[in-house]
Design a protein around this nucleic acid. Structure first.
Length: 104
DNA sequence: CGGCTGGCTGCCT
DNA sequence: AAGGCAGCCAGCC
C-alpha cells in the first residue's frame, strides 16, 4: 500500500465515520471495506488509536465484528467508549452492545 | 532488514 | 458458546 493510498484510506475512514448517524455503529472491517480497503480492519484500529482524546469524531461508533467494544473492561478506552455509546441510546453489558428496547 | 505488536476477523476445535 | 489460532498489515524498535 503506497503512502498516497494510505492517506486516501485515512481520509475515507474519516468521511465515513462522520457519515455514521447518531445511534448507529459499524465494524472496523466494514469501515475499512467501505473506505475501499478490505482486510484493513486493524489499520482502522491503528488510526483510531492515534486520535486525540478530545477529537470530535464519533470514533466510539466503531466496534468489532461481534458488536463488542474492542477494549478490555476497566481500561480507560473501554470506559470512554461505553459512556459515549450510552449517550447514544445503547445499553452496554460487559463489552457487548445491545439496543435498549429489545434486541438480539 | 527481521521481529513483535496491535481498538481485527473468520475458521476450527 | 468460548477459546485458540492463523492470516492480515502498517508502525515501531
Amino acid at each position: 500500500m503506497t503512502n498516497q493510498a494510505m492517506d486516501n484510506f485515512k481520509s475515507q475512514v474519516f468521511l465515513i465515520l462522520n457519515s455514521i448517524p447518531f445511534g448507529e455503529c459499524i465494524a472496523y472491517g466494514e469501515l475499512a471495506a467501505q473506505a475501499g480497503f478490505p482486510n484493513h480492519a486493524r489499520q482502522v484500529g491503528a488510526i483510531m488509536k492515534k486520535l486525540p482524546k478530545d477529537t470530535s469524531l464519533p470514533w466510539h461508533r466503531v466496534v468489532n465484528a461481534q458488536r463488542r467494544i474492542s477494549f478490555a473492561e476497566n481500561t480507560d478506552g473501554y470506559l470512554r467508549q461505553k459512556e459515549k455509546l450510552e449517550q447514544e441510546g445503547w445499553l452496554i453489558v460487559g463489552t457487548k452492545l445491545q439496543l435498549k428496547n429489545k434486541d438480539s
